[in-house]
């Protein structure tokens, strides 16, 4: 495992934050919340991908990135319904290919097609079209900013909302003290089962790891898929200035494993040396407050810890 981390560092382009592309590909002025973790993830990704990117966006918070008559991008942005971004990406890819092959569009005008979608669109509504597109080997990048609920409509539970979290549709009640009683779908596992050429999780707190992964994916063909855990001050209930702290705790507690799947193998690219207890992550967010007040729910916290430990047992050396 350690050897493979070294390997990937050796071939990487980015080693320190000053290696990042100084050009901002997303102009400021968007209506996203101050301190949005997902925006930071996408900003870093766009620094690698550059302006020749055609984005197909599923309705969600990030639809506010480009609101008529304003866009922060130099490339194109196509807005779709929640289940529609991948079919849109197929259409855009086909149109570019056909125009280059038959209608004299210069190769230099070619664009990287990328889907930008939230977890509701990704884990739930758009799962089936994405499955079909990966199966067809569609040449595209998928960037899922995962804020673990339907954020734009007021934070309802999605297939990505974690066990024990409060959402508008999974409040903590006498009958259902945990709030959300289901664990997140294992989207990484679902996508991995399709055997795509590239699949990775990324965190806005790890700009070097994120940039190297996008760099690697940029030069590949076929479906290249990303899940970006996106701390959301508004929905998760923490001060915007703590976005990176929350993102870091998600990694350090082992709740969010940073990994990639390439050549049939899963590699953890940022492995926490000693995992912190999950409550270090939970206790800072209002959506988990009911696990600590009015009385501590050790049973639910232990269940969350147990899920994390069980995950990592598979990979312990």
């Amino acid at each position: 495992m350690t050897a493979s981390i070294l390997d990937s560092v050796e071939e990487s382009k980015y080693k320190k934050v000053t290696d990042l592309n100084p050009q901002e590909e997303i102009a400021p002025g968007s209506a996203l919340c101050a301190g949005c973790g997902g925006l930071e993830g996408m900003r870093l990704a766009m620094k690698v991908l550059g302006e020749d990117t055609l984005i197909c966006n599923a309705a969600g918070c990030f639809t506010l990135i480009s609101v008529y008559p304003f866009t922060p991008l130099k490339g194109s942005w196509l807005y779709t319904s929640m289940s529609g971004p991948v079919p849109a990406a197929q259409g855009a890819r086909d149109a570019l290919d056909i125009r280059m092959a038959k209608h004299g569009l210069d190769q230099k005008e070619n664009m990287q097609v990328m889907v930008v979608a939230g977890d509701g669109a990704t884990y739930d509504m758009g799962l089936s079209p994405t499955s079909a597109a990966i199966h067809r080997n569609l040449d595209f990048i998928y960037f899922c900013y995962d804020n673990e609920a339907y954020g734009n409509t007021g934070f309802q539970q999605s297939g990505s909302s974690p066990l024990g979290s409060y959402t508008m549709t999974s409040p903590s009640t006498l009958d259902h003290p945990a709030g959300s009683e289901r664990s997140k779908k294992d989207l990484f596992g679902i996508w991995m089962a399709h055997n795509p050429p590239y699949l990775a999780t990324v965190s806005p707190r790890e700009p070097i790891d994120l940039s190297n992964k996008f760099k690697k994916a940029k030069d590949m063909k076929g479906p290249r898929l990303f899940i970006c855990l996106s701390p959301c001050p508004t929905g998760w209930g923490f001060d915007p200035k703590e976005t990176h702290l929350i993102a870091k705790l998600a990694v350090d507690t082992g709740i969010f494993p940073i990994k990639e799947f390439v050549n049939g193998k899963v590699i953890h690219t940022k492995r926490p040396r000693k995992r912190l207890p999950v409550e270090k992550y939970l206790e800072r967010q209002k959506r988990f407050k009911h696990l600590f007040e009015p009385e501590r729910r050790d049973d639910i916290i232990a269940q969350i810890q147990n899920n994390v430990d069980t995950y990592w047992e598979q990979y312990d050396e």
Binding site: A27, P28, G29, S30, A31, A34, S66, Y68, P69, F70, T71, P72, L73, K74, W77
Partner: peptide, 18 residues
Amino acid sequence: VPVIFATGNMALRKTGNW
């Protein structure tokens, strides 16, 4: 159907007073 032909003009929106 709203179509934007400008690029990067979001910066015209000054979010500094948030």
